[in-house]
C-alpha cells in the first residue's frame, strides 16, 4: 500500500480508466493475473476481451439467454447502489444446473463484482445484489453449468447523472456500525414453500482507489470479500465479492424452509481480516 501511494500520481485515483484498473489489480493482487489481450478498435470490446481472457482464458461463453435472465435498471439512478438480479430459466435441480455465477461490470476498476457459488444440490431460483456502476457499461452475468460450459447474458446500463458518485454518502456512519447484520424474511414462512430472504451487512466497502489530497494517502481498501450462507448446516451459496459491490452489501436469495424451526447462518470475511458471523432463526409461521 505504501509503495503504491508514494509512486502513484493522484490522477491515478480516478475510478474508471485503465490506470485505475491496473492499480486495482495491484491492490487486490491475484484477482487478475495477467492483462494482455488483443487491441481492438472498439475500446469497450477491447476491455471485455481483457476481462474475458483474465477470467476464462481462451474460452468464449455461449449465448445464455435461454438459461438465465439478468435484470438491471435502464439507468444507474444512484451510481453507488444499482440493484441487479439474476434468475435461472432452466430447472436448477438437474441437468444444466448453474454452479458458478460471475457478475461483471466492464467499465469498473475491478470489473468482477462477485462470483456466486452454489455448492449444494438444492435448487436456487433467483439471486440479487447491489453494485456500483459509475460509467456507461455492459453488465454481464456468466454462468458455469455443472458440465463445465459457460453461458453469458449482457445488459447495458447507462451511468447516473448529476452529482451521483459510486461512493459512500456517510462514511462515518458506515464505519460506526461495521459488521451489523440483518436477515429479512417475509411475514409468512411456510415449510416447503420457497421464499425470498435478504441478507444485509453494514460495511463501508472502501475501494482503496480514492486519494486523499490532504493526507497524501489513499483511503485504505476495506471491503467484504467473502460471504457464506448455509441453512440447517447445508451450504446455500457462497459469494466472493469485491469493491464493485455497494457499501452495506445485500444479497437476496431463495430459501425453502424445513417443516421445523431451523437456522440460517452467515459468515463474512473482509479484506482487512475481520470476520463476522451470525445465526438467524427461520421459524415457520403458525399453521
Amino acid at each position: 500500500m505504501t509503495t503504491v501511494s508514494e509512486s502513484a500520481h493522484p490522477d491515478a485515483c480516478a475510478w474508471p480508466g485503465a490506470w485505475a484498473l491496473l492499480l486495482a489489480m495491484v491492490l487486490l493482487g491475484g484477482l487478475w493475473p495477467v492483462l494482455a489481450g488483443p487491441v481492438l478498435a472498439n475500446p469497450d470490446e477491447a476491455r471485455w476481451e481483457e476481462i474475458r481472457t483474465a477470467l476464462f482464458g481462451d474460452r468464449l461463453p455461449a449465448d445464455g439467454r435461454d438459461l438465465l435472465q439478468l435484470n438491471t435498471p435502464y439507468r444507474a439512478e444512484d451510481a453507488a447502489v444499482v440493484p441487479v438480479s439474476i434468475k435461472p430459466l432452466a430447472d436448477q435441480a438437474a441437468g444444466r444446473r448453474i454452479q458458478d455465477l460471475y457478475l461483471i461490470i466492464d467499465m469498473n476498476p475491478v470489473p468482477l463484482a462477485t462470483v456466486f457459488h452454489f455448492p449444494g444440490t438444492q435448487a436456487w431460483d433467483e439471486i440479487a445484489t447491489r453494485i456500483r456502476v459509475n460509467a456507461y457499461s455492459n453488465v454481464r452475468a456468466v454462468a458455469r453449468t455443472e458440465d463445465g460450459q459457460l453461458y453469458m447474458v449482457v445488459n447495458y446500463v447507462k451511468a447516473s447523472g448529476g452529482c451521483s458518485a459510486p461512493s459512500l454518502k456517510d462514511p462515518a456512519a458506515a464505519a460506526a456500525q461495521i459488521g451489523r447484520m440483518k436477515l429479512v424474511l417475509p411475514e409468512r414462512v411456510s415449510p416447503g414453500e420457497r421464499l425470498a430472504a435478504q441478507f444485509l451487512i453494514k460495511h463501508p466497502n472502501n475501494s482503496g482507489l480514492q486519494f486523499d489530497q490532504v493526507s497524501r494517502q489513499f483511503i485504505p481498501a476495506d471491503y467484504v470479500k467473502h460471504i457464506a450462507v448455509s441453512y440447517q448446516g447445508q451450504p446455500l451459496f457462497t459469494a466472493d465479492t469485491n469493491i464493485s459491490i455497494s457499501e452495506n452489501p445485500s444479497v437476496r436469495f431463495g430459501l425453502i424452509p424445513a417443516a421445523a424451526a431451523g437456522e440460517l447462518s452467515v459468515q463474512v470475511q473482509d479484506s482487512t481480516g475481520r470476520a463476522f458471523e451470525q445465526t438467524f432463526p427461520v421459524v415457520p409461521s403458525g399453521g
Binding site: C13, A14, P16, A165, S167, F211, D212, Q213, V214
Partner: peptide, 16 residues
C-alpha cells in the same frame, strides 16, 4: 470538516 474526505472520494469522478 467532512468536505476534504468527500472530495477525496468523489472529486476526481466529478471532474472527469
Amino acid at each position: 470538516a467532512n468536505l476534504a474526505d468527500a472530495l477525496a472520494r468523489r472529486g476526481e469522478h466529478y471532474r472527469e
